[in-house]
Design a protein around this nucleic acid. Structure first.
Lengths: 330, 330
DNA sequence: ACAGGTTAGGCAAACGTTTGCCAAGCTTGA
DNA sequence: TCAAGCTTGGCAAACGTTTGCCTAACCTGT
């Protein structure tokens, strides 16, 4: 446990000199190649490693092996609890598998996403995890080049590729069931204006199911904004101005529901008695401070494991498997 | 914009061959050393760079320069919105300065923190950002070795070192003022049991101010738990069981306030009429779904800039400056 | 014509690893 | 006794950069 002074952090050469063997031998022992050295040598080298406090230099290793232990995760907006939960669980899973995660916040902007992709490539990262990616030129190149990528939540723009996410159509349908089985018949839905496939699928699942159950009209409103919070606020305002308050309102994300809630409160509309709100995401905070919100629960904190499994599969050459994660009603 | 095929990603040698110059010349041009080449050569090399799609390999560069553009951020619990906000803003600030952030979730555990520190050292990271760090052996070694570290929120265990955070004593005092100026006299405070210096200072600032204003008794309760949410729930339960509901309750973090709120709701105590809750953090979500919570607002999304500035200062050898960030009442 | 200075660019040695190949010594079987 | 094989370990070449030093060629002033 003795630590070397600051000067220069022990290298293979340091260890080799201390143990009186060659660099090659130390390297092999560090990498667990035990059959190439006698037990006695191994012991001596291990001791030398401990005494000089040797830690392998990843730059050298990366250079030689032409691959690193770095995995890049590109996500829009880390302040969104959904992204934070995915990032946290992925980080843990990667760590357990011996990798290190680099986190990049793309702010949902194609240009920033491209900039990051290029920066990551020159870091020689070993794989990419694209959470809710947006189509962009460099991403397209990467996919075409067969770069090891796992897509999360939003499917790859190019169609095929490894994917981890939920069945959004079914989630939308389940939300519809929640409202319907509560006896509510006049229902609406709130979405972002330029929705991704995620929100489109949730919307579709919801509307289709409601119609299948016998609803003739589903009130819809959409809005644009910097965050889903603002979108929810704005959209519900439009919807109610046009059609009045419905009995039930599906929000394609919890954050949108929060926005709708604020408007309801400011309008003295009491939730959930006057209008039942259903969200999708199942933010853990709900049970603490938003008990009025029913939500389709998604276990984002369990995404990490399958994401890393898929990445591993991609590395092995297994092109485009996918994992559809379960969701539940809460 | 032409992209090379997957084979091997263009190196300096590729560019040199394409431009008909030596590797050294290309390297110099890439690094902006324009005085060592004629304008004509520079143009030819730049063109070659573009045509082969050259991106510098950071492993080689790191190896040679003995320093990388990687900065490690170690934080407990990424799912805490406070950490997420700090991480997001730091990531942006680092990015703007040309660095790349590696994010590690220590779960507040000394052993994991040490493991990460070692792992980061062998990645040859250039600096460390310790958010709410916990004392640990390796951290102590790093500090002793003079590693470039910026501490955020919690001060360095060893006393001196660069620090970014708020004046917690004053924040506590401000919370006391909020309750007092609302005319509330029977006040309490909720804290985690094994608090850090952060919660201790907030507690101290609160109690001292309240006493200075003339309160003779401040009701206190603490609890342990996996999260501040649970701590708040548990602590308020203890406090009210012992002393009944006070008129005002200070919670050393917003999350604790959320926990307290849940218990109040379950006990049919209406917040804030029957008991005013004051938190510290100013979670942006408050104005959307927790309007009953008053809070000391901290602009965590502005921590990134000073953190990077301090890191820069540390690199330049400027030992242990600190930035006390402002907070406001909301 | 020549000394001295500037400009433009190449050579080669590092940085820390990994790994194919070689070699010396030993064992074993015929 | 010798050939063949195994064990143990070293040599040296890469991987992609950066940079101190060298060297031509040109320029300028006398």
């Amino acid at each position: 446990m003795t630590r070397k002074q600051r000067s220069t952090p022990a290298s293979l050469a340091t260890v080799a000199a201390a143990a009186g063997v060659s660099i090659a031998t130390v390297s092999r022992i560090v990498n667990g190649e035990t059959r190439r050295a006698s037990a006695e040598t191994i012991a001596r080298v291990r001791k030398a490693i401990a005494v000089v406090g040797y830690q392998p230099n990843h730059a050298g290793r990366t250079l030689r092996r032409r691959e690193s232990r770095l995995v890049a995760m590109l996500a829009p907006n880390l302040e969104n609890p959904v992204m934070a939960a995915i990032a946290a669980s992925t980080e843990a899973a990667l760590r357990a598998a011996g990798y290190v995660m680099i986190l990049c916040d793309t702010h949902d902007r194609p240009d920033l996403q491209d900039e990051y992709l290029n920066a990551m490539r020159s870091q020689v990262v070993r794989g990419y995890i694209m959470v809710a990616s947006v189509p962009s030129p460099v991403l397209k190149d990467f996919v075409a080049d067969g770069a090891p990528i796992v897509f999360v939540n939003r499917r790859p723009p190019s169609g095929r590729g490894a994917f981890v996410g939920i069945d959004n159509i079914k989630a939308g349908a389940d939300a519809a069931d929640m409202l319907w089985s509560a006896g509510l018949r006049r229902c609406g839905v709130l979405t972002p204006a330029q929705g991704s496939s995620v929100t489109r699928d949730r919307l579709k699942g919801f509307c289709d199911r409601l119609r299948a159950l016998g609803t003739e009209d589903v009130y819809k409103a959409e809005a644009t904004g910097r965050s889903h919070l603002e979108i929810g606020y704005e959209a519900v305002q439009r919807l109610t101005a046009r059609d009045g308050w419905p009995e039930g309102l599906m929000c394609v994300s919890d954050q949108i529901a929060y926005g709708a809630y604020r408007f309801a409160r400011e309008s003295d509309v009491v939730i959930p008695e006057r209008c039942m709100l259903v969200g999708i995401d199942g933010n853990p905070l709900n049970r603490w401070i938003a008990p009025w919100l029913r939500s389709i629960e998604i276990m984002y904190e369990e995404f990490g494991q399958p994401i890393v499994e898929l990445l591993d599969q991609v590395w092995r050459g297994g092109g485009n498997a996918e994992r559809i994660m379960p969701h539940s009603v809460a």
